[in-house]
């Protein structure tokens, strides 16, 4: 049997997860859908029971997706929240790579696939519910698109790649935090990210002050190019986000590898 990755062992991990966690997963799913339903209903109530625009539904989806992905991703490696569970998790006879891929699939990929379907389903259900309840208000059922209309976010034409990378960053940071911190990983991850963010902002501001960038006027013949004149910010962000994502994933794996009890 392969010592790095075996499909049959991976299958056993899925089977174990389904048998042991199905109740919790089902309850989480219902809680998420119930929460969404309540949010939609409250928005309808505060909106005077009028129809919500596709743009609004699309934008709300992005907000809900980011919040939910941070929460769900932050709950990865639930076994690491206690010493006893960590022991039993680390001793499951499967390789680190299998455990890592399994957790990533369950926590990240499955969420990315399932969330739009659940969102669409609940939005429609709630709309049908409201329509049935307030028929006298001449409220008619409208179908809601499966995916949010990215054009409504005023992104560049192919904004989906940038959005996907940003979403993946949220997931990967939450995932890394869950791998690293034993207790309250979500709060600690947010705090760490905030500290790092402030540190880099302070570093940039200090550097700008130190080198007096505002008075920078290069001599034509000896031009030190800090920034190209035709700088493609979109390309820059795309590449940076890709690199950050590519770095975060192996760090998550290494954290699992180093895990001790």
């Amino acid at each position: 049997m392969n010592s790095t990755f075996s499909i049959s062992r991976f299958g056993l991990l899925i089977r174990k997860h389904l048998i042991e966690e199905y109740k919790l997963q089902l309850m989480s799913l219902l809680a998420f859908m119930g929460g969404l339903f309540v949010i939609f209903f409250l928005i309808h109530v505060f909106n005077g029971m009028t129809a919500l625009s596709h743009d609004f539904i699309g934008n709300l989806y992005i907000v809900i997706f980011i919040v939910a992905s941070s929460l769900y991703g932050g709950a990865s490696y639930s076994s690491f929240r206690s010493k006893e569970q960590t022991m039993s998790y680390l001793l499951i006879p499967s390789t680190r790579l299998e455990k890592f891929i399994f957790e990533y699939v369950i926590r990240v990929l499955l969420f990315i696939v399932l969330t739009p379907i659940m969102y669409w389903l609940v939005a429609n259900l709630e709309l049908a519910f409201v329509s049935a309840l307030y028929e006298k208000l001449d409220y008619t059922y409208q179908s809601i698109r499966l995916l949010p209309d990215l054009r409504s976010l005023h992104l560049p034409v192919h904004g989906i790649d940038l959005m996907s990378l940003i979403i993946l960053i949220f997931f990967n940071i939450a995932f890394l935090g869950a791998t690293h911190f034993m207790k309250h990983p979500m709060i600690k991850t947010l705090f760490s990210v905030a500290i790092l963010w402030m540190f880099f902002v302070a570093l940039i501001m200090f550097s700008a002050y130190l080198f007096d960038i505002s008075r920078y006027s290069p001599i034509q013949d000896f031009q030190l190019t800090l920034m190209p004149t035709e700088f493609n910010w979109r390309q820059f962000f795309l590449r940076s986000l890709t690199v950050i994502n590519l770095i975060l994933i192996p760090i998550c794996y290494l954290k699992l590898k180093e895990k001790e009890v």
């Binding site: 049997m1 010592s3 075996s6 062992r9 089977r15 174990k16 048998i19 042991e20 966690e21 109740k23 206690s82 010493k83 006893e84 569970q85 022991m87 039993s88 680390l90 001793l91 499951i92 006879p93 499967s94 390789t95 680190r96 299998e98």
Partner: peptide, 30 residues
């Protein structure tokens, strides 16, 4: 922590955590 090593070792710790399922299902899963 190779799979072949872990499948040939069983550790019963003093303090342990077990899922809230029946023995039958725990055996089926593990």
């Amino acid at each position: 922590r190779k799979a072949s090593f872990l499948s040939d070792l069983y550790f019963v710790p003093e303090e342990f955590a077990l899922p809230s399922i029946s023995i039958k299902n725990h055996v089926k899963a593990n």
